[in-house]
């Protein structure tokens, strides 16, 4: 028993002697002010986005199912889907060769051409709409009418406006996709017996597939949400050139907030879906 007490006493002494000095953890903690301030920005930003989306849900949840059954909504949804998909496919048809040429070729005036192609990105959509209206109305309108291809104030106008706005995004994305491919992979394929066209189909496109799909997703997203140029070129006509964006605008302007909110929620879901697709394609490209 005595021995035990002696041991305990020695242990206590040792503990007193050798234990590290008790210090205030807050004092010893070094604060990285840079990380802290940057972190704060992220917290505020995340909170803002959550509040934005949450607000839409809270106000838009009302009679959501009734809106889904509304013929105007159904028209706008289907119209938006087919016009945006058509515009995206047209943009891809233009952007794949354009992106490839800009990526692989060097020619005089290349920088100027690239700048011209980027103009719809920086130009206000309303201005793009006015420019398209002038070109496809007074300038080329008669020719287009002769071939029964009227664009102004028609569904075709919606596709043209969406395509015009979305194509520069596609060109940029595809150019980057082709830039990321080692040209020597194409050269090896040529020596193995493939012609230039076959190399593009059998090597270049499969290699760029992930980037092209992610670029297409972003292009579609851009076409889906297009409003300004569409409104000017195709007009804002209920059940005729009414895309989802136009539907929100029309119903907000007549005070049908519930309809506008529900459509906004649908567009939000679509945006989230497209972003997920984009991230999926981007990550699959990275893992290759």
């Amino acid at each position: 028993m005595k021995d035990l007490q002696c041991l305990q006493s020695t242990a206590l002494k040792q503990n007193r002697v050798f234990a590290p000095a008790q210090t205030n953890p807050l004092k010893s903690m070094k604060i990285n002010w840079l990380q802290l301030s940057f972190g704060l920005v992220f917290v505020v930003l995340t909170g803002f986005m959550a509040a934005l989306i949450g607000g839409l849900f809270v106000y838009g949840k009302g009679d959501f199912l009734a809106v889904l059954r509304n013929p105007e909504f159904r028209f706008a949804l289907l119209f938006t889907l087919w016009t945006s998909v058509t515009a995206t496919l047209l943009a891809a048809l233009i952007a794949i060769p354009a992106g490839y040429v800009l990526s692989r070729q060097r020619f005089p005036g290349k920088a100027l051409i690239e700048t011209l192609m980027d103009i719809p990105i920086v130009l206000p959509p309303l201005v793009s709409g006015v420019a398209l209206l002038i070109l496809l109305g007074p300038v080329l309108g008669e020719v287009l009418t002769r071939f029964s291809l009227d664009v102004v104030f028609s569904a075709r106008g919606v596709v043209v406006a969406q395509c015009f706005i979305a194509t520069p995004f596609a060109i940029r994305a595809f150019k980057q996709a082709f830039d990321s491919i080692d040209p020597r992979l194409e050269k090896v394929a040529r020596t193995l017996g493939f012609s230039q066209g076959m190399v593009f189909l059998k090597v270049t496109l499969p290699l760029a597939k992930g980037c092209i799909l992610s670029g297409l997703t972003m292009t579609w997203a851009r076409a889906l949400g297009e409003f300004g140029a569409t409104a000017i070129l195709a007009g804002i006509t209920r059940m005729k050139t009414e895309t989802l964006s136009v539907a929100i605008f029309l119903n907000m302007s007549i005070g049908d907030i519930q309809f506008a909110m529900s459509v906004s929620m649908i567009m939000l879901f679509l945006a989230l879906l497209l972003m997920s697709l984009f991230k999926f394609f981007t990550s699959s490209e990275v893992s290759q």
Binding site: K187, R190, T191, L192, F194, S195
Partner: peptide, 8 residues
């Protein structure tokens, strides 16, 4: 190149 039959 495809008509030269050279390995690379």
């Amino acid at each position: 190149p495809e008509n030269r039959y050279l390995g690379f």
